[in-house]
């Protein structure tokens, strides 16, 4: 029980999808960097669209539906119903939120 297992764990690097994962991590980092600057709504929607795209998705209608309208509903529930303040300079500039 205490001794390490003898069998080696084979990790076949050929099968690892480095490209996609690096894209995803980069998009996430950029998302973190802009979330306070350009606001929750736009940054989150773009984050979702970009992630769908880089994972190879091309069904644009679904990609659109599951980003902008989806985030808008989500934001309405948090910001409007639960009164949780989400920093969003863009929507504030447009006068949509106070």
């Amino acid at each position: 029980m205490i001794l390490p297992e003898k069998t080696k764990i084979e990790v076949n690097h050929k099968y690892l999808d480095y490209k996609s994962i690096i894209y995803l991590i980069l998009i996430s980092i950029i998302y973190g960097a802009v979330i306070l600057k350009i606001g929750y709504f736009l940054s989150t929607s773009l984050f979702l669209i970009a992630s769908y795209y880089f994972l190879g998705e091309r069904r644009w209608l679904w990609m659109f539906l599951l980003s902008f309208p989806f985030v808008a509903i989500f934001m309405f529930l948090l910001h409007g119903v639960l009164n949780i303040y989400l920093r969003d300079p863009l929507l504030k500039y447009l006068g949509i939120i106070g």
């Binding site: 995803l24 998302y31 992630s51 994972l55 998705e57 599951l66």
Partner: peptide, 24 residues
């Protein structure tokens, strides 16, 4: 589909953490 589920899980996790501290 995986292409939608994975980004949504990432969104779900990141937003969850963001809502705790609002700190990027």
């Amino acid at each position: 589909p995986r292409n939608f589920l994975i980004p949504l899980i990432l969104f779900f996790s990141i937003t969850g953490i963001y809502l705790m501290s609002f700190n990027n």
